[in-house]
Nucleic acid binder design. Structure first.
Length: 951
RNA sequence: GCGGGAGUCGCCUAGUCUGGUCAAUGGCGUUGGACUCAAAAUCCAAUUCGUUAGUCGAUUCGCAAGUUCAAAUCUUGCCUCCCGCACCA
């Protein structure tokens, strides 16, 4: 059944969205009389509609923009669209081929069969999705200046000119270098296969392997690929699969024996390979080869466990440290006759230990094989586990022994890289990359490792560059600050970044146009473009006019303006306007995104900024947030709990859904989108919408005691929520502004018997609506209008707390009353008195206040307190009561705080007398306890804890 | 494995830096009550256990130890979860 809502929130949202647009409320122009604040969000990749995860990130940006605007800042909040890279091209290709999954994805977002055909062209994606995304964001109420939006890639030549300039600048400074690197490669697509482009093998990366070159007497090389080059010191023999066909090939000028599969791998990795012939593995059995590292001779032995598709098909055997090798050798020794091997020779092959490790003796592999009861080499599962365990332990905790020469005493984990370098230098090994698991491209082709040559890199490994970036990390404001460590870590961890591709949408590298600048690498300083893009459009500047000198002048202030103007054909005043606008807005102050972008986008942004811009234009603030969960579950298409932004807005309302997503989490923790909460929000708003106009500007003029409390409370809430807003802690701010303040008002109305003070309640409403407006802007505008206020609340002044000192007594008095009400209620229900005749409130006798004060004074001498108190005649005159109270105090005084004086306590209760009488429908008497009162309840009274008696 | 972050009473969250005012904030949910022909909304109350004239007691803040008169908070060890570990959005 559809619940009929009295308030049509959708109509309200549309109404205000139109008004904002009509009045150009969020279009920002430089204004030197105002401080500026620049909020940006990384532009989304436009291969689909924004979802709740985007909504969270964007809502944070929008809330901060709105908050700063209300604080009187001139706020620039632009938005753009990212088209660079391969996914759109690949997806378009799939549409072209009629691939069903891709088609159904488009269908799901409501695209007709007819229109889907158009998506076979990548360009159509870059037209369709930006338009839609903009529509959705407008519909969600984001306060964006849309005049400055653009798309990336050569489809937008203006943007490409910015990227040209950026790369020329980086090259000039030596930050773009040439090199080669290994990638996971799809031979069919002729392109690197990143994680998202794989059907199988997510997270697999090329692992460098050492290929140890064993040489036979007749000069043939037996290349053994290993992840543990250090174990070459312990080789007893090689393994070759007797049943496999091996290839004899000229590799880099020498004759190698290797598997068929390995041949193409080496070719791919730029080795010169020339096939000579095919030989059965069994032919090499018992051949003697020389270990290049130790110089000793070892035999080649048959091992049927050797695979042809991993490494080279030839393996070195280290029985002391590799369970497989040990067990295979043991098996072989038991059946030497099978391959006509000399058992004397086999017997002489004993494990050579080279790594010592705590908890193991001489030969760890031997021990673990015996311990886990592995029978033979076919006991695969146990063998895998044992291998894994030994490898891990030896790597992290193992120390190399005497027989490793200069490496002795070093930890394996520490010396591995050095050792490998040495081996390569001595030509004992060559490096080759391998995938340690199967990787299948989305096109269903098996992937291999390819060495991409003549690749361009951003030189992020450069230590000097890193040093400057560290400085930028130290300087930047981070929301939350706890991410700073992570940033420093990432800066150190980053190596050179391959910044070009051969395939996909993008901007060509200006000096080597066969390369396309890759998607992360064109997204680092584009925020600067927001400051001038609308001018470029307005003044119809062509992309050809945007020569590097223009950017030099506008962004860096170098060059002579009339020369630049002449060269570019851009008028001097236009150039100056762009320059002024850039200098006014830059740098950006708050750039918010998900925490997963720390290790690329955000850090890249820092690197490129410090490389190109002077320190005053380095990024000033980053915000990071977690992901969004749906009712505690990870959002995913397969779970069916995947919600797009537009769906959320249409079904639950723009205000309700952004409030819910922001209330669900804070900092880098994941936000939980609570579907119960989102349902309850409209009711709350509706209530305010109805009630606030009735209270606003109405009420009594005189001041009563509860008014003072309320005034103070409002200030407290304003102060608190403002400081939360400053730290971008929006979840907490919502808590305060939405829920805590609602509670305050409730109590205030209750205490004042629904008779509010006109000025105070009006101030409350104004303050709350203003603060709420950053979270639920449409609703806030609507209330604002209903209250008869002029202008938009979106640009009203953020409330400031009154300057009056906070009187703690006022809070304490109110707490006392609240507590008393609760107590009376409790007692009533416990005793079952429904309609009491009289309620007596007993205020503690004077001497107890004195005792308490004295005890507080001697807090840290709790053992002596009883003695000290009883020495005071005013106290001790009360006899046993005094003693009991003194003992009680001595126990708890260390945990007590300063409370009310007896006068304040009495006054508070007298003030509240009328309220209490009304509340409980009977007479209330407030009595100060003295000697003459003997009531049990009266004797119980203590400071801040009046005695209560109900009759 | 490495680096970063986190684990609080059904769920989500506050509190942790700076130990005591903490059986622990607020929301949501749940239960009972009021209102209603009824439902939603709204309002009131309860929501670790036991006990009770408002009290008191027990056991709690991932687990286990430790420091302290006193630990959700400090220290150490362990367990679990999330993010990242790259050539790409």
């Amino acid at each position: 059944m559809v619940v009929e809502e009295r308030v049509n929130f959708k109509a309200i949202e549309l109404k205000w969205q139109k008004k904002w647009a009509d009045s150009k409320l969020f279009e920002a122009e430089p204004d030197k009389s105002k401080k500026k604040f620049f909020v940006t969000l990384p532009y989304p990749y436009v291969s689909g509609f924004p979802h709740l995860g985007h909504s969270y990130t964007y809502s944070k940006g929008d809330v901060f923009a709105r908050y700063k605007r209300m604080q009187g800042y001139n706020v620039l909040f632009p938005f753009s669209f990212h088209c660079t890279g391969t996914p759109i091209v690949a997806a378009a290709q799939r549409v072209k081929e009629g691939e069903p999954t891709q088609i159904s994805i488009l269908k799901q977002i409501g695209i007709s069969d007819e229109e889907i055909k158009k998506f076979a062209d990548p360009v159509y994606w870059t037209e369709f999705f930006p338009v839609k995304t903009k529509e959705h964001l407008i519909r969600a109420g984001f306060s964006v200046d849309w005049r400055r939006s653009f798309i990336t890639t050569d489809l937008n030549p203006h943007y490409s000119r910015l990227i040209d300039w950026q790369y020329l600048k980086l090259k000039e400074k030596g930050y773009v270098v040439k090199g080669s690197h290994p990638v996971v490669w799809c031979p069919k697509c002729k392109n690197p296969a990143g994680d998202h482009a794989r059907k199988e093998g997510e997270g697999i990366t090329p692992e460098p392997m050492a290929v140890v070159l064993f040489k036979s007497d007749d000069g043939k090389i037996f290349p053994c690929a290993t992840l543990r080059p250090e174990t070459t010191f312990g080789v007893t023999n090689l393994w070759i699969n007797p049943d496999l066909e091996y290839v004899e090939a000229k590799v880099n000028g020498e004759t190698w024996i290797l598997s068929e599969e390995a041949v193409s791998k080496f070719e791919m990795q730029k080795f010169k390979v020339e096939k000579l012939g095919v030989v059965k593995g069994s032919k090499f059995i018992a051949v003697s080869v020389r270990n290049p590292v130790t110089g000793t001779k070892v035999p080649v032995l048959p091992g049927t466990f050797v695979k042809s598709n991993f490494g080279t098909g030839v393996v070195m055997s280290v029985p002391a440290h590799a369970p497989y090798d040990y067990i295979a050798l043991r098996d072989l020794k038991r059946t030497p006759q099978k391959y006509n091997l000399s058992s004397v020779m086999l017997k002489s092959l004993n494990p050579i230990s080279l790594i010592s490790i705590e908890g193991f003796g001489e030969n760890p592999a031997v021990e673990i094989v015996e311990k886990s009861g592995i029978k033979d080499q076919h006991d695969k599962e146990k063998l895998e586990n044992a291998t894994h365990e030994i490898y891990r332990k030896e790597f992290h905790k193992g120390i190399l022994k005497e027989n490793t020469g200069k490496y002795k005493g070093l930890k394996v984990s520490k010396c591995k890289d050095i050792l490998l370098k040495d081996f390569v230098k001595n030509k004992w090994v060559v490096v080759f990359y391998e995938l340690n698991d199967k990787v299948v491209c989305r096109c269903l082709t098996d992937c291999v490792v390819n060495i991409v040559e003549n690749q361009w890199f951003l030189n992020y490994g450069n230590a000097k560059w890193k040093k400057v970036v560290h400085k930028a990390v130290d300087k930047i404001k981070l929301y939350p600050d706890s991410t700073r460590k992570q940033f420093h870590y990432v800066v150190d961890w980053l190596k050179d970044w391959a910044c070009t591709r051969e395939f996909g949408l993008g901007t060509p590298l200006p000096w080597d146009r066969k390369w396309m600048i890759e998607a992360l690498s064109d997204s680092t300083i584009y925020m600067s473009f927001y400051t001038i893009y609308h001018i470029i459009k307005d003044r119809k500047i062509s992309s050809e006019q945007l020569i590097p000198a223009v950017f030099d002048y506008v962004f860096l202030g170098t060059g002579n303006v009339s020369v630049v103007s002449k060269k570019s054909g851009i008028a001097v005043d236009t150039l100056d306007k762009m320059k002024d606008e850039f200098n006014y807005w830059y740098p950006f102050d708050f750039r918010n995104t998900g925490k997963d972008l720390i290790q690329n986008h955000m850090t890249f942004c820092l690197f490129n900024h410090v490389a190109i811009f002077p320190e005053k234009h380095w990024p000033a603030g980053f915000g990071l947030n977690g992901h969004v969960k749906m009712d505690g579950d990870k959002m995913s298409k397969s779970k069916g709990n995947f919600v797009t932004l537009i769906d959320a807005v249409e079904k639950m309302g723009a205000d309700a859904s952004r409030l819910t997503v922001l209330a669900g989490g804070e900092g880098v923790d994941d936000s939980n989108f609570d579907s119960d909460l989102v349902r309850s929000v409209p009711y709350k708003l509706e209530n305010m919408l109805e009630v606030y106009p009735k209270f606003y500007g109405k009420g009594r003029d005189n001041i009563i005691s509860i008014d003072k409390w309320f005034v103070q409370k409002i200030d407290e809430r304003v102060r608190l929520s403002t400081s939360m807003m400053e730290d971008a802690c929006f979840g907490s701010a919502i808590q305060t502004v939405m829920f805590d303040m609602a509670k305050d008002l409730k109590w205030y109305l209750y205490r004042s018997g629904d008779s509010a003070n006109k000025d105070i309640v009006s101030r409350f409403i104004e303050v709350q609506v203003k603060m709420l407006s950053v979270f639920v802007p449409h609703f806030a505008e609507e209330v604002w209008e209903k209250l008869g206020m002029s202008g938009f609340v979106s640009v009203a002044k953020w409330p400031s707390a009154g300057r009056g000192k906070i009187d703690k007594n006022i809070d304490l008095m109110e707490d006392l009353i609240r507590q008393s009400v609760e107590d009376v209620r409790n007692i009533k229900s416990l005793v079952g008195i429904d309609k009491p005749k009289i309620i007596s409130v007993f205020i503690s006798p004077e001497w107890k206040y004195k005792a308490l004060a004295k005890a507080m004074k001697y807090k840290d001498r709790s053992h002596e307190i009883v003695k000290i108190l009883m020495a005071d005649k005013d106290i001790s005159v009360n006899g046993k009561q005094a003693l009991n109270y003194a003992i009680a105090l001595s126990k708890k005084v260390s945990q007590m705080n300063v409370g009310l004086s007896s006068i304040s306590e009495y006054k508070a209760m007298i003030d509240a007398k009328e309220f209490l009488e009304k509340e409980f429908g009977c007479a209330v008497e407030v009595v100060k306890v003295d000697k003459d009162i003997k009531s049990q309840r009266a004797l119980k009274a203590e400071p801040s804890k009046p005695g209560i008696e109900i009759e």
